[in-house]
């Protein structure tokens, strides 16, 4: 692998410069898109500005909204993983479970989570439960599908090895199938957390009255495009951080796999 050096910063800087030029030189109609500097200023007031009756109603409210959204993502994601991983293991391992459950999942999966919004509001109302439903459902699909694939990919030779060493079904599931599926499960978790951030923004824009998604839509309504862009950056950053956390956890649990890749 070639050394990366600081080159990774080149493209982002170029894009930033392009953005700056597009606004200051009026390549786009004035007043629609804020300049990078303006976004940075608004963002910093939003984060560290004094709360309460200052010039900007957003002043100092960033962290609270980030926490709202992050909590929802965490909860929804944990529910999705808690249901998706065991279910995926069962579908991948057990023919009966596969016949009973898999077709329904495959039929429901193509329905985009955005299409579930009216249903979610009608059933759960404008509460957290509706947001959790959307997040959990969205993250559930990649987790369950990847877990199932991982289980089905288990090497037949390893299954035979475990059997001739005296392992029963439970031992095989715990000590062979699960570890073998773990890389795939982590792929599912990474995809899942990405969907969770999409879902939380959608849910907060429409179904609940707090969090980054709510701020995004609210700022758009009152014409604060600078806050909109700052929100987009915030969501991107949080999505990136959560992906890194899962990746890090993966490296921790999959030490043997890292060795394999470098061996």
């Amino acid at each position: 692998m070639p050394r990366r050096g600081p080159w990774f910063a080149l493209l982002p800087l170029a894009l930033l410069l392009l953005w700056h030029a597009a606004v200051t030189r009026q390549w786009v109609a004035p007043g629609i898109i804020p300049a990078p500097a303006q976004v940075a200023a608004s963002w910093s007031t939003w984060i560290v500005g004094p709360p309460g009756k200052s010039l900007s109603p957003y002043s100092g409210t960033w962290l609270a909204n980030v926490l709202h959204s992050s909590r929802r993502v965490c909860e929804g994601f944990l529910i999705a993983a808690g249901v998706g991983i065991p279910l995926g293991l069962m579908i991948g391992w057990n023919r009966l479970a596969s016949t009973l459950v898999d077709p329904s999942i495959q039929l429901l999966r193509p329905v985009p989570i955005t299409a579930w919004l009216p249903f979610s509001i009608a059933v759960f109302g404008i509460y957290d439960a509706g947001a959790l439903f959307l997040i959990g459902l969205g993250a559930f699909y990649p987790i369950v599908v990847n877990t199932t694939h991982g289980v089905r990919d288990t090497n037949l030779l390893l299954l035979r090895a475990a059997r001739m060493l005296g392992a029963g079904e439970t031992t095989i599931l715990r000590k062979v199938v699960f570890p073998s599926a773990l890389p795939s499960i982590f792929t599912g978790l990474r995809l899942g957390v990405g969907v969770a951030w999409t879902a939380v923004i959608v849910a907060e824009m429409i179904a609940v009255k707090s969090g980054l998604g709510y701020v995004l839509w609210d700022a758009y309504y009152v014409g604060r495009m600078d806050i909109c862009v700052a929100t987009m950056f915030s969501v991107g950053l949080l999505g990136f951080v959560s992906d890194r956390i899962i990746l890090g956890a993966g490296h921790l649990f999959l030490r043997w796999r890292v060795l394999e890749a470098h061996g």
């Binding site: 090497n155 390893l158 059997r163 001739m164 000590k175």
Partner: peptide
């Protein structure tokens, strides 16, 4: 009737559990 530890197998591939 089925696999049993009294009839242990060494395969052509090592077939070790890579996570152990």
């Amino acid at each position: 009737e089925g696999p049993d530890p009294s009839r242990a197998v060494v395969f052509q591939e090592p077939a070790l559990f890579p996570w152990y």
